[in-house]
């Protein structure tokens, strides 16, 4: 008999994990490094517990809530998630989506910073050039801004 086991993405970032839970409309409270969900099992509320040794969050739950009893009789919202594994698969997907959104946001911010820097740099050069008697012509050449400065001595 064979089996395939696939683990979730390591949940390293609290912010991303919380964003994933927000997207899934899971309510939670944060106590120190733990993210306590509204999902309940035989032992109480299930939670993401941060493990400094592993450097990531682990989901703490009753192991019997992972398919041993179906439906699970002690509180977990079986209709929506079925098992802990199913729940974690959705968290995994939303965590990765949150990560992608963060990357896109960072990239956009970086592009915007770069664009502002280049614009300021260009304006500085134009101002200096004009103060030194150059005439300035600006054009766009592919991915470049071209400034042609010309000064004629009479």
């Amino acid at each position: 008999m064979s089996s395939v086991i696939k683990t979730t993405t390591p949940f390293i970032s609290k912010d991303l994990l919380c964003e994933a839970l927000d997207t899934m409309d899971i309510h939670y409270t944060i106590k120190q490094d733990n993210i306590i969900t509204e999902l309940e099992d035989y032992y109480g509320l299930q939670m993401f517990v941060y493990s400094p040794e592993l450097g990531r969050y682990q989901y703490q739950h009753d192991s019997s809530a992972n398919g041993r009893f179906n439906p699970y009789p002690w509180g977990m919202d079986v209709n929506k998630w079925g098992t802990v594994s199913n729940f974690l698969q959705v968290v995994d997907t939303e965590y990765q989506n949150a990560y992608k959104r963060l990357e896109e946001k960072k990239l956009k911010e970086e592009e915007e910073r770069k664009r502002k820097y280049i614009e300021a740099q260009k304006l500085k050069i134009i101002a200096k050039a004009e103060s030194k008697g150059y005439s300035v012509k600006e054009t766009r050449q592919g991915d470049k801004t071209r400034l042609v400065l010309v000064r004629t001595h009479y």
Partner: peptide, 14 residues
């Protein structure tokens, strides 16, 4: 008349 010319290209990376 002598003409001094400077061509400056600024690419998208700055």
């Amino acid at each position: 008349m002598p003409e001094e010319r400077i061509t400056i290209d600024i690419d998208d990376e700055g």
